[in-house]
Amino acid sequence: MVSKTPPTSKARRLRQRAPMPPTAIVDQGFVAARAMLLDVAAFLDRVERYGAKSDFRCEAMRSAAKFLSDGKPERARRILERLSDPTRAPLAVAPRGAACGAWKKGRK
């Protein structure tokens, strides 16, 4: 996707933010992100143990998780897009229940 939004200029960003070493952003977030990654891994193990490996939501999660280590930027955006309904036309009737977080073709 090509964005037309002009990025905030580097000069303006520097005025808005005190400089900090790159490791500081890792220090701030690493342990919390590590815990969330382990939760995802344990969740995928758990659904397998319970026989729900082929649930479309679990398949979508495993597929989206591949973006984590492909070395490309904007992983969050790409994971959200992977989990989204890609169709364009409004639905004639509302699907049963609430949105579940992953999309499957033809699911009612």
């Binding site: 364009r88 949105a99 977080g101 999309w103």
Partner: peptide, 13 residues
């Protein structure tokens, strides 16, 4: 805008 998997389509619409 809609929740979860419906957000992208709903936002476009």
């Amino acid at each position: 805008t809609p929740h979860l998997e419906d957000k992208l389509k709903g936002t476009r619409l």
